[in-house]
């Protein structure tokens, strides 16, 4: 069939869009099918938790700490106007636990982990390493994709909790510079306004972020084409799409948490 005979349902672009959505849907469904069936590559999952999670720790520490300090410094003048600086720990805790801890971690990991997975799998794809696994009767989807997505889903929530803790420590240092507050009273004050739902929704968000980042990175990398240019494109698209979805998910989950809270 030559190009002049080719028929499109809508147009080339729209057809391609729906094809891509369907391919992504099948990729996600395949993950759930593969992940529940043996063999389970526990060693590789642990290795990926180390590669993707533990190696992100310094960046998360720095970002979380700076976020805590800056947010406290920016909030202080507004509260000081009303003589309400004693509310600072509560305000900061709510902001960090409900939103900032998981969101900052999600965005940092979308950049660092998403691009790393996209580039690694992309280069494996274009240099036929994935094909080499397949012809050796090794399931590359299970070995490469399932393990990385699981590792992200496990480690990013832990990093999110850690980021929240570090941000609160940063905030404490900032508060401590102006007021003689002990760390115990800072945390006591801060957590007095935090509910189980706040922590639960934050954790749920991080799990969803982790799954999304892992899945997008793997999908883009696994389907990379066109040599080294394709690898760069896969890594770039993995970051952009993961960040976009992280923001969308943040809005949706916050809205859901608010409904539950009101209920």
């Amino acid at each position: 069939m030559n190009s002049s005979q080719r028929r499109y349902l809508f147009s080339k672009g729209i057809d391609q869009y729906f094809t891509d959505v369907y391919k992504a849907y099948r990729f996600v469904i395949r993950f759930f099918k593969e992940v529940i069936h043996p063999p389970f590559h526990f060693k590789e999952i642990i290795n990926q938790c180390f590669e993707l999670g533990l190696k992100s720790l310094p960046l998360i520490t720095l970002t979380g700490f700076v976020t805590g300090i800056v947010f406290t410094k920016q909030s202080r003048p507004s509260l000081a106007e009303f003589g309400a600086t004693s509310w600072l720990p509560s305000l900061i805790s709510i902001a960090i636990v409900r939103a900032l801890g998981s969101l900052v971690t999600g965005l940092i990991c979308a950049g660092k982990v998403g691009s790393s997975i996209g580039a690694e799998l992309g280069s494996m794809k274009v240099t036929e390493q994935i094909d080499a696994m397949e012809v050796s009767a090794i399931n590359p989807f299970k070995y490469l994709v399932s393990t990385r997505v699981l590792a992200c889903t496990i480690t990013i929530p832990i990093l999110g909790l850690y980021c929240g803790f570090v941000a609160l420590m940063g905030s404490y240092f900032s508060v401590h510079k102006n007021e003689a507050t002990s760390i115990v009273s800072f945390f006591h004050n801060g957590f007095s306004t935090i509910t189980f739902l706040d922590i639960f929704s934050s954790l749920a968000k991080s799990i969803v972020f982790g799954f999304t980042i892992g899945m997008i990175g793997c999908y883009k990398g696994y389907n990379a084409t066109n040599g080294t240019q394709g690898v760069g494109k896969a890594a770039n698209q993995a970051v952009v799409l993961a960040m976009f979805l992280v923001f969308i998910e943040e809005v949706v989950i916050v809205q859901m948490a608010n409904w539950i809270r009101d209920y």
Binding site: M124, E128, Q129, S136, A137, I138, Y143
Partner: peptide
Amino acid sequence: FQNSALYDSMNVRQNLEFPLTMN
């Protein structure tokens, strides 16, 4: 494969062991 398709993250020993231990 044309470009050998060796696994970049593994050394020669691990490249050779991998198909055997997995299968």
